[in-house]
Design a protein around this nucleic acid. Sequence first.
DNA 1: GAGTGGTCTAGACCACAAA
DNA 2: TTGTGGTCTAGACCACTCC
Lengths: 249, 249
Amino acid sequence: MAAQENDTAIGFKPLYAQVKDQLIRRLVDRTWQPGMSLPSEQELARQLSVSQGTVRKALDAMTAENLLVRRQGRGTFVAEPEDSRILFQFFRLAADDADATGATGAFPDSKLLGWAQDTADKDQADALDLEVGATVWLIERVRLLLGKPVLTETITIPADAFPGFEQLTEIPNNVYQLYSARWGITIAKADERLKAVAATDEDARHLKCELGEPLLAVRRIARDLEEKPVELRLSRCLTRDMHYAANLR
Amino acid sequence: MAAQENDTAIGFKPLYAQVKDQLIRRLVDRTWQPGMSLPSEQELARQLSVSQGTVRKALDAMTAENLLVRRQGRGTFVAEPEDSRILFQFFRLAADDADATGATGAFPDSKLLGWAQDTADKDQADALDLEVGATVWLIERVRLLLGKPVLTETITIPADAFPGFEQLTEIPNNVYQLYSARWGITIAKADERLKAVAATDEDARHLKCELGEPLLAVRRIARDLEEKPVELRLSRCLTRDMHYAANLR
DNA sequence: GAGTGGTCTAGACCACAAA
DNA sequence: TTGTGGTCTAGACCACTCC
C-alpha cells in the first residue's frame, strides 16, 4: 500500500485503517457516488497492494457504519440516503404500539412553515464550527405522522456549504437525500441531546397541544463523512402517544 | 467443532456464530465469571476444533458487545460491571457542560427511598415476561449528581430471579454489580423509551422542582446474556442543566 | 524468553446473482 | 458459467506483558 511506514510514530495506524481512510477519501471526493458499485475486493486489493483480507476488514468496518452496503453475489455499493434507511438510522421516534426496534414504518410528512437566511448566533456558530454572524439558512417545519402533528423542527445549515440554496423552490421531506443529490454531502452520523421542556405558545399552536405541555426537545448535530458538523436540528416532540427509542449495548 | 452440519436447514449459522453461542453458554453457566481470563485463542481453537481465525471472529464480536475485554499481551477477560463501564454504557445523562461522549465522569449517588415486595401489574408483567400477579421487588431511589437530586427511579425485578432478595440489608449504588455478584446475572443490553412528562406532586417533592415541571421519563428494560428481560426501570429526570445523550450512526 | 492478542497474508471452498 | 461476497483455514510476524 501507498507506503506509510511510521511504526514508532504516535500517528501509527494499522493497514486496514489506512485502507479505510483511502476508501473514505474516494467517497468524499465523489469518485464513488451513492448507489454506485465499488471494485471487487480482489481488484481493490490489487490496486492498493494489500491482501484481500485487509481490504475486507476495511469494507466490513465501513458497512457497520452504514457507509456501504454489501450484497453477496452482486458486489459492494455506496449506501444511498433512501427513506427507509434514514428513517431507521436517524428517526428514533415511534408510536407506543409499534415494535421495539424503533422504526415507525412510515416516514413522517412535513408541513413547511418557511425558510430564510439568517446570521448565526453563538449557539448555532458553536454547533456548526462557524464564526458568530456567519450566514446560515433556517428551515422550519412541522412534521406529521398519520396526519397528526408530532413535532416541530428548526434546521440550521451553513450557507457556505450549500451554495445555490436560495434557488430551491421546495424542500423535500427527506432533506438528507437533498443534501446528497444537490451538494454531494453525506450525513454519516449524528449526536443528539434530549431534554424535557414546556410547550411555548408557538409550540402549542403548531402541535395543537396545551401551553406548557411537556415536550421532548432534541438537539441534533449531524456530521458528514469527515465528521464536520453540517446541520443543527432542534426538534420539539409531542410524546403523548409516541416515544424516543434508544438501544444501549 | 461439535458437529453442526445443517447446511440447507433454515437454522444454519456460520461456524463463528456457533462458536460465539458456545462461548456465551460458558458465560451463562458461570464457567467463566466476571474478571476471569479465558483460555488463549489457540487453546480455544484446539478445544473447539476450529481455526484460530474463527475463534477470533467470535471473540471480537463479543468484545464489541462489551461481554469481553481483550488486552494485548495479557489475555481475554470476562467483562466486569465496574462503575466506569456501567456508567458509560448505561447512564446516558450528562451535565450540559460536559463533553459529547455522554460520560458524566461521576457515578450518581443514590438516596434509597425504600424497597418492598409487590405483585406485577399488566405493564410490569408485559415488560418482564411474567404473569400478571407474579411476585416482584420494587426499589425506589432518588439519584444525585454533585449533591443535587437529578432523577427518581423505580426498579422492578422478578422475585423468582432474585431469590433471597429479602435478606439484603442495603442496596448498593451500582445494582448491576449486585445482580452479578449475588445472583450471577449479567446485564448485557437495555432498551430505553423516552417521553416528556409533567412532574407530579411526588416528583416535585423528591427532585425539589415545581409541580408540573417537564421531566424526561425513561423506561428501561434491561436484558441478560440470553436476552431475557430481568429489570424494568422507570426514571424521571430533571433536565434543566442536564441532557440525555444519544449517538446515531 | 515465553505467551498473549493484533495484524497481515494467501489460498481454498461455498452461496448467491446475473448473464 | 462467471464473478461476487461470505466463510474458514493455516501460518507468519509484530507489540505488549510478565517472569
